[in-house]
């Protein structure tokens, strides 16, 4: 009887001591766009916003400066130049056309232009105009907005070292 009481007391002490280790407050409620540097409307549902990381947001900015004219149906100036280009280029959100292309392929065609890979010369080379990081950012943006969503075949390679 006595031994049982002692054990109980000891356990209670231990528990009390441990209780002191619990975190004092819970973390602030999670922000739904916690990782969002910028957002873009989902291609299949305009009400839904896709959060973008810093790199993807830079891709969006570069895309909307250089690429949007032929690779989207609406442009900052209004009409799109897409229909003036033959064959018609893929829009940026077209996952069916772009998901199958490897990162290396996309990077090459943006850097050297369509003619370098036996495709239309209407796609000019951007390797002398954009930096390598800019081109990677545009690719990251294309992957982020693809419909159907892009699923990498393998784990992505390191893009910008953080440490």
């Amino acid at each position: 009887m006595m031994a049982r009481t002692t054990t109980a007391i000891a356990v209670a002490c231990l528990l009390a001591a441990l209780a002191g280790c619990r975190p004092k407050g819970s973390m602030e409620a999670r922000d739904p766009l916690r990782n969002a540097f910028d957002t873009v409307a989902d291609a299949s549902d305009a009400a839904k916003l896709v959060p973008l990381t810093y790199q993807q947001a830079q891709g969006k900015r570069i895309f909307e400066t250089y690429c949007v004219w032929c690779h989207a149906d609406a442009t900052p100036a209004g009409p799109s130049n897409r229909s003036n280009v033959t064959p018609m280029p893929a829009v940026i959100t077209d996952g069916t056309a772009l998901n199958g292309l490897s990162d290396e392929y996309m990077q090459t065609i943006i850097t050297l232009g369509g003619s370098a890979l036996g495709k239309s010369a209407m796609m000019p080379p951007y390797g002398e105009t954009l930096k390598e990081d800019d081109i990677r950012a545009v690719m990251a943006y294309a992957r982020a907005v693809a419909q159907p969503p892009y699923e990498p075949a393998a784990r992505p390679k390191p893009q910008i070292p953080v440490k």
């Binding site: 990782n35 990381t53 810093y54 790199q55 893009q159 910008i160 070292p161 953080v162 440490k163």
Partner: peptide, 11 residues
């Protein structure tokens, strides 16, 4: 998780 790519090195 990995820190998303940014133009500055965390270190």
């Amino acid at each position: 998780r990995t820190h998303p790519p940014i133009p500055h090195r965390v270190g």
